[in-house]
Design a protein around this nucleic acid. Structure first.
Lengths: 211, 211
DNA sequence: GTCTATACTCTGATAGAC
DNA sequence: GTCTATCAGAGTATAGAC
């Protein structure tokens, strides 16, 4: 499957633009991003951005959808799988720690734009994706209920537990700078702190479900 | 303590501007906010914003500092107090649920601007505030250690526990829209979900510390 | 202190050549 | 598809009257 040299450049430019837009939007936010900076970053002219993605809003939406598609479905699937609950927790924490460590601005971008621009997210949750979400929830419910029954715990609603997992895992990445300020840590100490968290958080959460 | 009618207008305008700027910045983000919208919202002319706060950046900083001052010191103090650990958890969850329910965009604003603009936060953590933060941490450490010893738990670092508390409490407010999409909830159901969380989260966290 | 009017820059978007 | 050149509008900031 060799690329026809004519088509090659075209595709590449469009992808390079998307990659550049990703970097700039995530770093600066949609409103703070400049089309010029994206063009420079992609090594093309500003006009070309408008050729491939008519407006800034459309480019932003393309970036957004690409990002969301790159991890939401995977999480749904993993969480709906037959893996034991404990391993799901491990995998979730591991994969987000890995990704968010390498992309420090990603979470804040996703949260703030999703909160402020419903239109951006519009259409991402297709019927199929909603079904996947429901499959995930019902599988989790089943596993948690079993755990609760076996260990005779107070019942824990699956949605609440999932949110606690997600929140306590992701939040530190959103609040990294505040965290450093409040705990009085330098960048290096923050990294060490997060590494420890990666190991200890799953244990803490599992323990909370084990009695 | 009656206001001299001459001074009254002056003070009021400046405060009205701050209030308006707060509303607009929090809702749109700093980059997305327009000086014109702030002026309209405050019922004054655009030029007056520049008279009282030279630039947009300075106005944004004033808003930021006012917001941060309005709750950070209180949390530090409460968390450093002699209250039992369990009651601290209750109070923390309650006060944030109350505040963030009424100001849905506040958290996302705080997180995204703090992450992207170190200069904005610059100078907020004075030596006195850092001391307050350390007092909080050492008191929490003491209380958690005691809990751990009494209940013979695996040791839980205070900073990690605090972050889990903060994250699992605040995150849902930052991800409100995503939450609704993933769980397939309408606005009303989201509210009910959050009310339940307010009651159940403290119990879950305390249980995690009780074995 | 507050307003009107305006200067000027920045930036998203288009036209048109290659 | 990609570039150069340019426009139109938006948006921050200032000058100056009251």
């Amino acid at each position: 499957m060799v690329k026809p040299s004519g088509k090659r450049e075209k595709v590449d430019a469009k992808v390079r633009i998307l990659d550049a837009a990703d970097a700039v939007f995530v770093r600066r936010g949609i409103d703070g991003a400049r089309m010029q900076e994206i063009a420079d970053h992609a090594g093309v002219n500003k006009a070309l951005l408008h050729y491939h993605f008519r407006t800034k809003a459309e480019l932003a939406r393309a970036v957004w959808l690409r990002i969301a598609s790159s991890f939401v479905p995977g999480v749904f699937e993993m969480m709906a799988s037959e893996l034991p609950l404990g391993e799901k927790i491990d995998q979730f924490v591991d994969s987000y720690h890995e990704r968010l460590t390498r992309h420090p601005y990603l979470l804040v971008f996703a949260l703030s734009e999703a909160a402020r621009r419903p239109d951006l997210v519009q259409g991402f949750y297709t019927p199929e994706r909603r079904r996947a979400a429901r499959r995930m929830m019902s599988k989790l419910r089943e596993q948690i209920d079993e755990e609760v029954k076996r260990k005779k715990l107070a019942p824990v609603p699956a949605d609440q537990f999932l949110l606690t997992l997600v929140g306590s895992c992701l939040y530190p990445f959103a609040a990294r700078s505040t965290l450093a300020d409040v705990l009085g840590l330098g960048p290096k100490q923050v990294r060490r702190f997060m590494e420890r968290r990666r190991k200890e958080l799953p244990a803490f959460l599992k323990r909370a479900l084990q009695r």
